[in-house]
């Protein structure tokens, strides 16, 4: 897919995310909108996946450790053909396979159940270690939040990843600077996150987290013997002016007016 089509695609997927969230009147718009291009870089450009064989043994693994952003993942998976797009509109309903947080036993294409923050990155470490043990060639991509990196578990995972020289593991951080109670720096300052991961022994790179080429470019080889950490600079709520950079939109339902305004900003109409 060329860049112009990907840009168009991102707008459509943003509308899908908002429609899902509007219909169920719950869930997390801010962090879903900020992770979208990271997931698109993986599913449209970099990772080896096959929607006809979601459990294909040699696929690359993708773990959305910041599980609350799953509306973005669901929109991408539906677009890639893992399940029908109509399923999206039943997000979080009692008979839906699309749970409030990703469920590997219910939704095709989900490699690990997440939602309790900090755990996905450790699961990804186990998957990468399993690949090494099996002498399999697949890579493991893990998307974490910046607030999530306050969990001690994240650093236990980083330590193990470096110790076992997991150069088949890539950790992508959605660095939007915000969490629920406010900016990371006010809630619990993380300092220079990339420098911390470097100190733990990871190769570190930076990318524009809303530029698919920039993200994909940062995921190239050249980190032999080391896991890779990519700090993706993002804007929470990206694409909807009143949600952008606003912690209030972490987990707030949209009313009719807000939904219509958001969809209009993304070039759509509410019933499309």
């Amino acid at each position: 897919m060329d860049n112009a089509s990907l840009t168009q695609k991102a707008r459509q997927l943003r509308r899908d995310i908002l429609k899902m969230l509007y219909l169920c009147q719950s869930g997390h718009p801010g962090g879903s909108l900020s992770s979208l291009e990271i997931l698109m870089a993986l599913y449209y450009k970099v990772a080896k996946t096959d929607s006809r064989k979601p459990r294909w043994e040699d696929r690359d693994r993708i773990v959305l450790s910041k599980g609350h952003a799953c509306p973005a993942l669901y929109a991408v998976l539906a677009d890639r053909g893992f399940f029908p797009r109509e399923d999206l509109w039943r997000l979080r309903q009692i008979d839906s396979h699309l749970q409030g947080h990703p469920d590997m036993n219910k939704t095709p294409g989900i490699d690990a159940s997440t939602g309790s923050l900090g755990q996905g990155i450790s699961i990804a470490v186990g998957m990468a270690l399993a690949a090494k043990t099996r002498k399999a060639g697949y890579r493991v991509f893990c998307v974490i939040g910046d607030g999530e990196a306050q969990e001690g578990l994240v650093w236990e995972a980083a330590m193990a990843a470096a110790h076992y020289k997991l150069d088949n593991l890539v950790v992508l951080m959605d660095h939007n600077g915000l969490q629920i109670d406010g900016p990371n720096d006010q809630v619990m300052g993380l300092g220079d996150i990339a420098a911390k991961f470097a100190a733990f022994g990871l190769e570190t790179r930076r990318a524009d987290g809303h530029d698919i080429d920039s993200i994909a470019g940062a995921l190239g080889s050249g980190h032999a013997g080391k896991p890779l950490f990519v700090q993706c600079e993002t804007v929470k709520g990206k694409g909807v002016s009143f949600m952008e950079d606003n912690p209030g939109w972490h987990g707030k339902p949209m009313n009719d007016k807000e939904y219509a305004a958001a969809i209009a900003q993304l070039g759509g109409t509410v019933d499309a």
Partner: peptide, 8 residues
């Protein structure tokens, strides 16, 4: 807790 699901 409802919609957040079984993980929460």
């Amino acid at each position: 807790v409802g919609e957040d699901g079984g993980s929460h």
